[in-house]
Design a protein around this nucleic acid. Structure first.
Lengths: 358, 358
DNA sequence: CTTTTTGTTGTCAACGTTGTCAATAATAAA
DNA sequence: TTTATTATTGACAACGTTGACAACAAAAAG
């Protein structure tokens, strides 16, 4: 019994063993701990021989630099993702994109959901930067559109990357990852026009929502390009929700001439539109074509699957993360350029040629 | 011009001013920095007078303890949320619940999406604990069901809280937040039976999915309670997706007698069921009642809105977070009890009395 | 052969905090 | 009043790491 206990204690000791530090590695390799630090940080001026030996010891001890100590001594190794977005799927994809980049580069992500309408958002973020030693921040709309906030953060010495979409020209406050909603709206509309649709409805216009403005701009541009007329009555104001999609669709279906195609500003609206069309005994796409935007799960959680525009959120976020990290690493802040993403149409089954085509 | 430049530099200096440290506060208050530390940590034995003065200075300088330094010196102040769940909405709600608790208590959250099927998941988590100085971990299904993994983590000296649902009896490995799927499935089924339905279909059984097992158990229990018979053919195996929901519904609708009510194992299946019912020219709920589970956004993104079971993910997550934090703070690990959540039915419009009731 | 340059390695302080323990002041007990 | 006790405060080391700089060895230049 006593023996067994002893054995247990021993095993415990082994499994509970302290995490190895840089000094443990140094002792094992027979060098000063500073040399190990050099190897770990891939600094110059370490002889090949020593480097190999140290790397061997690192592997052997399964040593991992202590993030915390590193951050304290050196520059921050964490970045924050700040968002205020009701769309879970969007947020998760962004998070995953950022995390994938962070893992590659040994950085850490702090997520910070917030309320963009709050007066306190600036203070709140400042506090977060402060206490969590955040070096960089990724902002999504609508926070990224808030110039005042961006300036405030820049003044706190944080690197900021803004993810922006929509029509408004980007300023030079901070690097931007721009999502070209205008062009995407243009492409998608052109597709519908080329199918032969003459009366397109645009659902989900929202004056304060940059993305919707961009998409609408593209919608108009595409019409203009082929000399088609945009019917102002078919541009409907509404929320980005299923319910609103149903309501807006009900409204446009009662108009005459009835539109043969619906450009929904996002997939959720489109899903609502599909549902309402069905309630009105219209077949999709035979009687009415409906397209969405975002390529969110909604687009395949309705029937038929939605033709939509793919928004590569993962990649966008990863790009933003790569930018912040680059900014954090180089002293020269303004060496980082903004980047842009163009979006592609995903053809599925909710749009086709109008049936009673003349 | 020169003067203006000078002024600019000055303003900059002010805005860029270094974050105040505990020593700055100490100097201002005329005490040693250790005393400030005591005030910050609400330790005993600080005279009321000094305490007030220090607090005043803290406010004045807008001092915030440096999380990083704290973690390094003391115990960890971060916890990790580890998940492998395709359901964005679920993950976001959980995250928000945990964050709300973390903010209250000054802790930090590290999110860690992972692949539960990977062989490396243990190693991966160990590395994370190590480098990020994680003190506690919250696991969700299916990771939380993996006893081996839990043991492994416990051996790494991490506090673990598991969120579990389903029918299987919890073990005593680590504290658990248990979600009572069985009882909820029972309640929801009883509701349908009380409405007068005789033929209920159960969609989304999945042998390896604890939640579905629990819900099915409740489904059976409720039948047994009132002496009703469960038709085995109406228990359909399938994924938790819209598409699978459509397919399973198609299958049960072709059976005879046709079920008058469908118990879908989650809202997504239910949404697919509603859609299929509609395709088959059945009205919901007049011709067929359909209920979901989870109260996810899907439940209101279909028409009619789904009667479902509310799963308070935010609260569940917050409870789990509170537990881990408590465990991290007290040395006495096993003072923390497990806790359980019961779920409530949300009555909406997708279920009613069967119409051709005898 | 000496001097300079270059490359490699080590020593030490510092980051901002908390734990330990000693020093002092205030209070209670003798 | 003196002593013992307690409450308050401070000095200092430590956590694991990196930056600055010094020390040394080797190679190049004179």
């Amino acid at each position: 019994m006593l023996l067994k206990d002893k054995h247990l204690t021993l095993t415990r000791k082994i499994t509970f063993m302290k995490k190895p530090t840089i000094k443990d590695v140094a002792k094992l390799a027979g060098v000063s701990f500073k040399t190990v630090s050099r190897v770990v940080n891939q600094e110059q001026n370490v002889s090949e021989e020593v480097k190999l030996r140290v790397q061997e010891c690192i592997k052997q001890l399964n040593y991992q630099p202590n993030h915390t100590a590193r951050v304290m001594r050196k520059s921050p190794f964490s970045l924050a993702f700040v968002y205020d977005n009701p769309n879970s799927h969007y947020v998760i994809e962004m998070q995953n994109g950022i995390i994938s980049e962070c893992r590659k580069q040994g950085f850490e992500l702090v997520i910070h959901p917030t309320d963009s309408r709050s007066e306190e958002v600036g203070k709140e973020l400042a506090a977060m930067i402060n206490s969590s030693q955040i070096g960089g921040i990724i902002l999504t709309p609508p926070l990224s559109e808030n110039r005042e906030l961006v300036t405030f953060l820049l003044n706190r010495d944080a690197k900021v990357v803004r993810i922006l979409s929509g029509a408004s020209a980007p300023d030079n406050l901070a690097p931007v990852v721009h999502v070209d909603d205008v062009e995407a709206g243009h492409k998608l509309t052109s597709y519908l026009l080329e199918l032969g649709h003459k009366h397109l409805a645009f659902l989900g216009y929202h004056a304060s929502h940059e993305s919707s403005l961009g998409r609408l701009q593209g919608f108009k541009d595409a019409h203009e390009e082929v000399g088609a007329r945009v019917d102002k009555n078919l541009i409907v104001d509404g929320e980005f929700t299923f319910e609103s999609g149903m309501a807006m669709t009900k409204q446009v279906l009662s108009m005459s001439p009835r539109p043969t195609a619906i450009f929904a500003c996002n997939d959720e609206i489109a899903a609502g539109a599909v549902f309402m069309a069905r309630l009105k005994e219209l077949r999709v796409p035979e009687d009415i074509s409906i397209v969405g935007f975002e390529n969110s799960p909604f687009s395949t959680q309705t029937w038929p699957h939605l033709t939509t525009v793919n928004q590569p959120n993962f990649e966008i976020a990863a790009a933003a993360a790569a930018m912040v990290i680059k900014m954090m690493q180089s002293k020269d802040v303004h060496s980082v350029d903004s980047s842009g993403f163009t979006l592609d149409v995903v053809l599925r089954d909710s749009a086709s040629k109008p049936q009673n085509d003349k």
